[in-house]
Design a binder for these strands. Structure first.
Length: 105
DNA sequence: TGCTTGACTTTAC
DNA sequence: AGTAAAGCCAAGC
């Protein structure tokens, strides 16, 4: 079977340990897609969190903020809740301290 | 078959 | 510090 580009991305995201977060650029790099961070974001946009066991909530942008899609409409709150339950600490501005909670394989 | 959009990143001013 | 532009690939119409 042929591993699609997204399949590799899902696998990489699924490798993120609990209580850690990764940036799109990092996921792209680990997936052999360095420089194509948009593909990672787009991949997570197309999947269904209900049918997929991909911890999409552990993926944030380079600023440590939670990216949201117009379709999710407020899903950032859910994502933040999930991360907080895993032990991820948020800054007063609602940002994540990437230097501390960033996934380092 | 071709153009537009989209959960991004990085560099530069 | 915040704003602007370029680069990349895939799916949708």
């Amino acid at each position: 079977m042929t591993e699609s580009t997204y399949d590799r991305i899902y696998k990489t995201v699924h490798q993120i340990p609990e209580g850690k977060v990764a940036t799109y650029g990092q996921i792209a790099e680990l997936t052999n897609l360095a420089g194509k961070a948009r593909l990672v974001g787009y991949a997570l946009y197309r999947i269904d969190p209900q049918t997929s066991d991909v911890p999409w909530h552990r993926v944030v942008n380079a600023k440590g903020e939670i990216s949201q899609s117009p379709f999710r409409n407020g899903g950032d709150y859910l994502q933040r809740s999930l991360l907080e339950q895993e032990g991820v600490q948020f800054s007063p501005q609602g940002k994540i301290n990437l230097r501390a909670d960033r996934w380092q394989p």
